[in-house]
């Protein structure tokens, strides 16, 4: 009964807030959209640097796309809560806001993992990215690590996004930054030193390397990379908890969520 109640909370949140809750949209945005994203970068790569870099770029973009969708989903959830006026109800509810958010996070996290696995299979079938079955399971493990590492950052970014009345520019700039700084299409080592320092503290950078190492069968660094990514994710998670706590405290003290409300 308790389990059913907890699951129904997650399910109802999914139906109310999740962007792609019809089958048609799900197929469009979970199969066609990632394929088109990879196709675009495959086209640029083949044209400019040749097909020998295809695997490198496709794997980087799998990590980027998965991360981008995770962030996007969290931002959408917060945005819808704000638009429909239920964000303040979450804050006023007897359950801590953070627990509510964790419950609502189940679907986006599973969805991101699904995107990652589908993308890996798509890369194998459509873009000739080869790997063994053993590597596939390792890749799935890397996907789990990546999604959990990005979870904290996604919560943090979704929280920050509430400060913007028009979130589109913030979101687009953020994703552009991740694409350029996390080694998605080219190695981080090509960037100037100060940008490399930023890259190393961003979630995703180590996941991109981890995925590439697993696919290439180079297992020497994988535990180090996985640990580094999880550590970075944990730091973002703690910052997200603190930020949400602060926002909740501010909301309860002032009786409003934002200065402009």
């Amino acid at each position: 009964m308790l389990l059913q109640s907890r699951l129904s909370f997650t399910f109802l949140s999914f139906k109310a807030l999740y962007s792609y809750n019809s089958l048609k949209l799900f197929i469009f945005f979970r199969f066609l959209d990632p394929f088109i994203h990879y196709l675009f970068f495959a086209m640029i790569t083949t044209s400019i640097v040749g097909s020998e870099y295809l695997t490198y770029v496709i794997l980087g973009n799998i990590a980027f796309y998965t991360g981008r969708e995770l962030f996007q989903n969290f931002i959408s959830i917060f945005r819808y809560e704000r638009r429909f006026g239920t964000l303040s109800l979450n804050v006023a509810a007897p359950l801590p806001t953070f627990v509510i958010l964790i419950k609502k996070s189940v679907v986006p996290l599973l969805d991101s993992l699904f995107i990652f696995i589908i993308s890996v299979l798509m890369a194998y079938v459509m873009f000739d990215v080869s790997f063994s079955w053993q590597s596939f399971w390792l890749l799935c493990g890397a996907g789990v690590i990546m999604v959990f590492a990005l979870f904290g950052a996604a919560l943090l970014i979704a929280g920050i996004s509430l400060l913007f009345s028009n979130v589109n520019l913030f979101v687009n700039l953020l994703f552009a930054g991740f694409q350029l700084l996390c080694g998605v299409n080219f190695p981080v080592s090509l960037l100037p030193d100060f940008l490399q320092n930023i890259s190393n503290i961003l979630p995703l950078t180590h996941s991109v390397e981890l995925i590439r190492d697993i696919q290439a069968g180079q297992n020497e660094r994988i535990y180090h990379l996985a640990l580094a990514e999880l550590s970075i994710g944990a730091v973002y998670f703690i910052i997200a908890i603190l930020l949400i706590g602060l926002m909740e405290k501010y909301a309860k003290q002032t009786g409003r969520l934002f200065d402009n409300e």
């Binding site: 870099y53 350029l180 299409n185």
Partner: peptide, 24 residues
Amino acid sequence: IYQFILFVQPLVLLTIIHFMSVMK
């Protein structure tokens, strides 16, 4: 939204292409 498409997107794409060519 159009600020991004007009001013930032070309810069991002150009940066990617530039670093890809450096990589090669």
